[in-house]
Nucleic acid binder design. Structure first.
Lengths: 246, 246
DNA sequence: GCGTGTCAAGAGCGGCGCTCTCGATTTAGT
DNA sequence: ACTAAATCGAGAGCGCCGCTCTTGACACGC
């Protein structure tokens, strides 16, 4: 990378950033598929062909924007998780942070959670930033478990078949958390983003829009569904007395 | 409309249908934003400007495709609901039908449940077909209630504030169903489409993909969550003995 | 100081949505 | 049956778009 080593390098880094900024500005107004390299170059006072020195194609620029969006959302989620002590409150705060970010940046949200852009194939470099929100949520469950704040969920069914192995990959991120809870976490995760997408895309108009109260109500119910009661689970068969060990 | 009154009317109706068919074919291959009027006109062996005699703009053609997609999905859902006696089985069958249709027609699914197309503003004519799936699901709950197949959900919180009025609009479609259940129905509804979108858009890759087992497991848990146990609810305080009244 | 690599600029390719005009044909009213 | 109006496909053309290639100027490292 040799960041800023020569004048040329510095100019290049700055122009790259300016292109992305202009692209983000245009994205916020017009949406991803209206994003035009020619319009960006006009805004920057350069000729369109010069852009290709910095991004070899429109898709590459989109990829950069996608990664930035994932990172921005991930940072919001991580900050929200840090700001709350109680695991239930932290879970709710993260979900609210995701919704707030989505409402504030609808086109960037669509870019990463909406239908994929036309011929665009997401490269591998997007996988890791894409997982940040999920990692935060799973981490919260791990924290709740170690603090004895996870209710046992006796009535929930155990996963079977292929689900057993799939859940095992999640257990690596949230050690100790029972499989039943992890399954329900994925259910809550899909519910969260389904709810946000429906709100953003107008599917709730006429019923639950404005959705603030419904959103809060749904989050509370899904937290209960997860066993995140917010109070120490008096009987945690997996780790009795864990709450006292910290 | 004067359908088929003159030779010109008949030719016009047929060409309109052929244009939509070609558009749907192109949509299935390329996706909505790659849909090109010029490509359609090439496929039909006509000049691009002639298309504008049938659809005044690309957006109008998209609207027609959107309405057709909503109707196709709605028909699948209604058929699935008809084919099952037991309310729980019917609910599960409708959800599976939605997922199957989405997997079979991913671009049409994206057209109606994905991020909105660029400058496209959905006209009012899409609202009614858009509600068909939701109406089917709510209708099933009404049926389950009148048959005494809805568990009371004592532990679920009652809606408060604005939610009370919002739920009331749903109660008009599913008469008698308690507000608690209707709220949970919206939660299950958003979960369903969130799950399908995540599967289609690759968010489950690396964890729950392939998603068949997770999907079935999640549906079963959400049905329980709704109080759709599949067996008569022995104590239905709202309508005791309703199961015997039919 | 001089070759080398990098840069912005310009022209140009094919494709796009869309508009307008122009004859040909069909329809509808008398 | 004749004519005026409506509708039709075809064609040319407008301003966009992503992207490529070439050219000449500039800054860099030796």
């Amino acid at each position: 990378m040799n960041a800023g080593r020569t004048a040329r390098d510095r100019a290049r880094a700055e122009l790259t950033r300016e292109i992305k900024d202009a692209a983000r500005r245009q994205l916020a107004v017009e949406g991803a598929e209206r994003l035009s390299l020619r319009a960006i170059s006009r805004e920057l006072g350069m000729v369109s062909s010069a852009l290709y020195r910095y991004f070899p194609s429109r898709d590459e620029l989109l990829t950069a924007l996608i990664i930035d969006a994932y990172d921005a959302l991930g940072a919001e989620a991580e900050a929200a998780a840090r700001d709350e002590e109680n695991p239930r409150e932290a879970w709710l705060a993260v979900c609210h942070a995701v919704r707030d970010w989505a409402r504030k940046h609808p086109h960037e949200y669509s870019l990463i959670y909406g239908s994929p852009v036309a011929g665009y194939q997401a490269p591998e470099s997007t996988i890791q930033p894409a997982s940040r929100v999920a990692v935060v949520l799973l981490g919260l469950l791990g924290r709740a478990y170690s603090e004895g704040m996870l209710a046992p969920l006796d009535e929930a069914p155990e996963p079977t078949g292929l689900l057993v192995e799939q859940v095992a990959t999640l257990a690596a991120i949230a050690p100790g958390v029972p499989a039943k809870v992890l399954i329900r976490a994925v259910i809550a995760w899909t519910q969260l983003f389904g709810m946000i997408s429906f709100e953003l895309y107008g599917q709730l108009v006429g019923t639950m829009d404005p959705a603030d109260e419904f959103f809060a109500h749904a989050l509370a119910q899904m937290a209960d569904f997860l066993g995140l009661g917010g109070r120490p689970a008096l009987t945690n068969p997996a780790d009795p007395g864990a709450a006292a060990s910290l």
